[in-house]
Amino acid sequence: MVKDNIWGLFQKVFYVYRERLYTINFGEENSVSPKIDISFKRITNENYKLVENLRDGQYVKEFKRMLDIGDFGVFACVNDIPVGYGWAKLENSRDYFYIIQNCYLCRFFVSSEYRGLSIYPCLIKNIMCSINKKYRVKKFYIAVEHKNTSSIYGINKIGFKFLQENFFIRSCKITFNKFQLRK
């Protein structure tokens, strides 16, 4: 009984994340075609508030913060209206779980009514091409929650290879065991 109470208290104070880390070298990715006509827009200080149409406004401040620290974001659009987004964190960017020395792809979202149309893998590929063109980055990483089979399917479609499974312990917005993504 005491053991259960201690474990319950631990789980309220500390959260354990279990993520699968994948990697790919630029130029090794598979060709992916969307099942719908989509376009891509770089997320900027002029348009970042468009996220409020996707996620009830809950990420507007977070998008501004990510732009302010130099992260690279892209909206996926249908008829010029954002239906999804994704981000890339470049070397020395701040992240909850990783110390970045290459390019870490993260924070992807596609509206539920547009899922299953290959928007997610096309968005990843667009960001990879943009980052490679602008910064000449050759190695990309992406981490996926271990139970997120849809995202795992999407990154496998592109050609990402499983690297390792990581466990992170967080409490009070502090991660106690960051991993370093090496060149």
Rank of each mutant, 00 (worst) to 15 (best):
N126E: 15
V60K: 14
S33G: 01
G70K: 08
K89R: 13
P34V: 11
R94V: 15
G70T: 07
V60R: 14
L54Y: 06
Y104E: 10
C106L: 05
G27L: 06
G73H: 02
P121L: 01
P121M: 02
L117A: 03
Y48V: 10
K41H: 13
G70N: 05
I119K: 04
Q58Y: 08
L123Q: 03
Y120I: 00
E29L: 03
V32K: 02
N79S: 14
S111F: 02
L90N: 04
F40I: 10
Y120A: 00
N79R: 12
N126P: 08
K125E: 07
F108G: 08
F14M: 11
V83Y: 05
R55L: 13
I81S: 06
K64L: 15
G86T: 06
I81R: 01
P34Q: 09
E52A: 10
N30A: 05
Y48Q: 07
C106A: 14
Y48K: 09
K49T: 13
L117D: 00
E19Y: 12
L67M: 13
F109A: 06
F14R: 01
A76R: 05
S118W: 06
F97L: 06
I38V: 15
K41Y: 11
G73K: 05
Y96M: 12
C77M: 11
Y17D: 12
F72W: 09
E46W: 02
G73T: 10
V74Q: 05
Y98E: 06
K64M: 14
L21R: 07
S112P: 05
E46N: 14
C106V: 10
Q101V: 02
W87D: 00
D80M: 13
R20A: 09
V83S: 02
L105A: 03
V110P: 01
A76M: 02
Y15E: 04
I124V: 13
A88E: 01
Y22A: 04
V32Y: 03
E19L: 15
C106W: 05
S118M: 10
K125V: 08
K49V: 09
N126W: 12
C103Q: 09
I24C: 01
A76I: 02
R65Y: 14
G27D: 04
K89S: 14
S39P: 04
Q101Y: 15
R107V: 02
M66K: 15
P82G: 11
L105S: 00
S39D: 07
E113Q: 09
V32M: 04
Y59C: 04
C106S: 15
Y96T: 13
E62H: 07
N79L: 11
I24V: 10
F14H: 08
E28N: 15
L21C: 06
K89L: 12
V32G: 03
N45E: 14
V74M: 11
F72D: 04
S112A: 05
K61A: 15
V16F: 03
L21F: 08
Y17T: 01
K35T: 00
C103K: 05
K64S: 13
P82N: 08
Y22K: 06
L105D: 00
A76L: 00
V32D: 00
F97I: 04
S93V: 09
K89T: 11
I81G: 01
Y120H: 08
Y15N: 04
E29A: 05
F97T: 00
C77G: 13
S39Y: 12
G116P: 07
T44V: 11
V110N: 00
D68A: 12
K35V: 00
V110C: 02
F26Y: 15
L123D: 04
V78E: 02
E19M: 14
N79E: 14
Y114P: 01
